[in-house]
Nucleic acid binder design. Sequence first.
DNA 1: CGAATCGTAACAATGAATGTTACATGAAAA
DNA 2: TTTTCATGTAACATTCATTGTTACGATTCG
Lengths: 152, 152
Amino acid sequence: MKKNSRLSAVLHALLHMAEHDEPMTSDALAQCLSTNPVVVRRTMGLLRDAEIVTSERGHAGGWRIAVDLSSVTLRQLHETLGEPAIFAIGNSNEDSQCLVEQAVNAALEDTFIEAEALLLKRFGEITLADLARDFARRHAQWHQQKELENES
Amino acid sequence: MKKNSRLSAVLHALLHMAEHDEPMTSDALAQCLSTNPVVVRRTMGLLRDAEIVTSERGHAGGWRIAVDLSSVTLRQLHETLGEPAIFAIGNSNEDSQCLVEQAVNAALEDTFIEAEALLLKRFGEITLADLARDFARRHAQWHQQKELENES
DNA sequence: CGAATCGTAACAATGAATGTTACATGAAAA
DNA sequence: TTTTCATGTAACATTCATTGTTACGATTCG
């Protein structure tokens, strides 16, 4: 199965947008994400429908963040993207008449539900602001590293 | 992403085999699983390499369980099947130079690791014997239901 | 008007899982 | 020994979701 990477992509895009005052064009974002502007529009369109970003057409148009970074969790973004399937493994025959299969499905299903609950809980605890903070930390560290390299 | 259902399939097959004293042919198992005998051989072959089942060719041949049901956990089976990817969502660009992406990846990665650990822990706690027991329970319940229906 | 930009439909490419065909190999029955 | 029933396995086909691409319409600004 090819992995769905939209959550990763929108996070990447949103943090880049957060670093910009001007709106960012789909082309610019596509370059950041190493992808295609149409893919950016398609995906960001979902965030616009949820009023997390706004888009403007024409000259000097582009995408802008419309909310406070601390008010958006990864879980919200996951939902906004349509809650894509989290697991790449699953039952072969979701509702079979076979009692053996039902027993198998039930055991697996329980486990998946539990793991999914944990994952969504964690996603609910992480905001865009948290990621921006972590980025800032990495950025500062990177600067320090650079200076050390220049001194030597 | 199309879901990987091999774990589900082998569990289903193993429980059916546990109900049989004679070895079961790939054809018979394929019917149980609504699939193709070659797929059965391919998948069961991995379990044979791990000595969880044995296969015999020729007349009256087929597949047989080679271990005690209580000694095999779902986690072992997952490993035997090559530890296929558990998640259907992930990072777009695993090792990017972009510090923004690194921050995003780190946050997601942490969450995935935690959820995966929980899932594997649960898989490690469930044996084939547990599933067989659950099947027996469902089977008994189904009989009861039948009798009630016949009385009325 | 014309260039920049999003909006969107339609289609192509990619990749992973599963299914299928074909044939070789081995074992037991006739 | 020949036939039949099995597994073993390579090669190829199908299916399905994700992502990428092309094309063109709609809008905004200079």
